[in-house]
Amino acid sequence: MILKKIYLSWRPGKGDGRFLVGVFSRENSSGDDIVFKYQADEVKKASGKGFYNYPEFPDFDKEYRTNLKTALSLRLMPKTRADRNNYLSFWKANIDGLDWFDELGFTQGELATDTFEFLAEYPKKYNGIGIHFVSNIAALSHLNLANDCVNIGDKLRFELEPENQADKSAVKIFKNSEFIGYVKRGHNLFFHKVKNEEIDIKVTNLEKNGKMKQIYFSVRVI
Rank of each mutant, 00 (worst) to 15 (best):
H132L: 00
K124P: 03
G128T: 10
Y126S: 15
I137D: 00
N144W: 04
A120W: 04
G130W: 10
E117L: 11
S135F: 00
E117C: 05
D114S: 09
V134A: 00
T115G: 05
H142Q: 08
A120T: 04
N127A: 15
N144S: 10
L143W: 02
E117H: 03
S141F: 06
F118P: 06
N127Y: 11
I129F: 09
P123F: 13
N127C: 06
I129T: 09
I131P: 08
L119S: 06
I137P: 13
E117S: 14
L119G: 02
F116L: 06
S141M: 05
G130E: 02
A139C: 08
K125I: 04
S141P: 06
G128R: 13
A139T: 11
K124T: 15
E117Y: 03
G130R: 08
F118I: 04
F116G: 09
N144M: 09
D114I: 13
F116R: 05
I129W: 11
H142I: 05
K124G: 10
E117W: 01
L140E: 02
E117M: 06
F118K: 02
I129H: 13
A139P: 00
P123H: 15
S135W: 01
F116V: 07
F133H: 03
E121D: 15
K125D: 08
G128A: 12
I131A: 13
I137W: 05
L140Q: 07
T115M: 11
L143C: 04
K125M: 11
L143S: 05
P123T: 11
A138S: 14
L119P: 02
K124C: 08
H132M: 00
S135P: 05
Y126Q: 14
H142D: 07
N144D: 07
A138E: 01
E117A: 13
N144R: 13
V134E: 01
Y122T: 02
Y122H: 10
A120R: 02
K124S: 11
L119R: 10
E121A: 13
A120I: 06
L143Q: 04
V134P: 02
A139W: 03
F118W: 15
S141H: 09
A139I: 06
Y122F: 15
H132T: 01
K125A: 01
L119M: 11
K125H: 13
F118L: 02
N144L: 04
D114V: 13
G128H: 11
E121Q: 12
V134C: 02
F116N: 03
L119C: 06
A138Y: 00
F118H: 11
F116K: 06
L140T: 00
S135N: 04
F133D: 00
L140P: 01
T115P: 07
H132K: 04
I137L: 14
L119W: 09
L143V: 05
V134S: 02
I129K: 15
A139F: 12
H132E: 03
E117D: 03
N144F: 10
V134F: 04
Y126M: 15
I131Q: 06
L143G: 03
D114C: 14
Y126R: 15
V134L: 01
